[in-house]
């Protein structure tokens, strides 16, 4: 329900520009927004809980009582004393009923297992992505930019290919696992390997074909009128 099959959005801010986005994210309806908000809260609470657990197990000395910081948290924040502020915040969390419950529940777990599982939880909460979004931006006269990933705290990996470097944009077929897939590639001058567009999602033929037509229309319009769509296919 939270994800769909890859589908295509086309944005054309101007006649010489087009952005093709393939994403697994469905249309943002109110229930979906609520669900996504819930997931965000879940991520934050998971991270907080994991950090608190690590703090309580490894950094908190039970023999020495916690010293209240001299100043109030607000003044600490203003002064820029991050470390005492963080320690205080973590201790407060630990001392809260929820923190105490977590601490007592995890008491029997050995330290190494606790460390591993907490780190894993933090990693997943930070980097796991619900949706995959990949896009292709075409600017006539400039070139095309592919972008993959993004979302969460990660940045999307982009690659810009200037027009004079583009030899061709075409659809090819290849074996992948136990099937034969269609995929869109950009042949770049002077490079051994072709650049695969939408490498993670590898959308189905319908989408790939629509993008291919759009890219050719936007990039080579005028000079590519006589081109026969079929002639470009598959001759790699």
């Amino acid at each position: 329900m939270l994800t769909t099959n890859p589908h295509l959005y086309i944005r054309r801010p101007s006649p010489t520009t087009a952005e093709f986005t393939v994403t697994t994210c469905p249309r943002l309806t109110i229930p979906l927004r609520l669900a996504l908000l819930l997931i965000l809260l879940l991520r934050i609470s998971t991270i907080t809980a994991a950090i608190t657990t690590i703090y309580a197990r490894f950094f908190l000395d039970p023999s020495s009582p916690h010293v209240q910081p001299a100043a109030s948290p607000l003044s600490l924040l203003i002064q820029g004393d991050i470390f005492p502020l963080l320690t205080h915040a973590l201790y407060t969390l630990h001392a809260s009923p929820a923190g105490q419950f977590l601490f007592s529940t995890l008491e029997p777990v050995p330290s190494w297992a606790l460390l591993l599982s907490s780190s894993a939880a933090i990693y997943v909460a930070l980097f796991a992505q619900l949706h995959t979004t990949e896009s292709l931006l075409v600017l006539r006269g400039l070139g095309i930019q592919t972008s993959t990933g993004g979302g969460g705290v990660q940045r999307a990996r982009t690659r810009f290919i200037p027009t004079e470097k583009i030899r061709d944009v075409l659809i090819n077929e290849a074996f992948r696992g136990f099937e034969v897939r269609y995929y869109l590639v950009v042949v770049v001058e002077g490079e051994e390997d072709v650049v695969v567009v939408f490498p993670k999602l590898l959308p189905r033929k319908k989408i790939v074909e629509a993008v291919w037509r759009g890219v050719r229309g936007c990039l080579f319009e005028g000079e590519g009128n006589g081109m026969n769509g079929r002639a470009e296919k598959g001759h790699v």
């Binding site: 090819n172 077929e173 290849a174 074996f175 034969v180 598959g234 001759h235």
Partner: peptide, 17 residues
């Protein structure tokens, strides 16, 4: 030769790995 190829007359050849 691996992958999908077309010969000149439209004969398609699948070279399955």
């Amino acid at each position: 030769r691996s992958g999908v190829r077309y010969l000149t007359n439209g004969l398609k050849v699948y070279h399955v790995p």
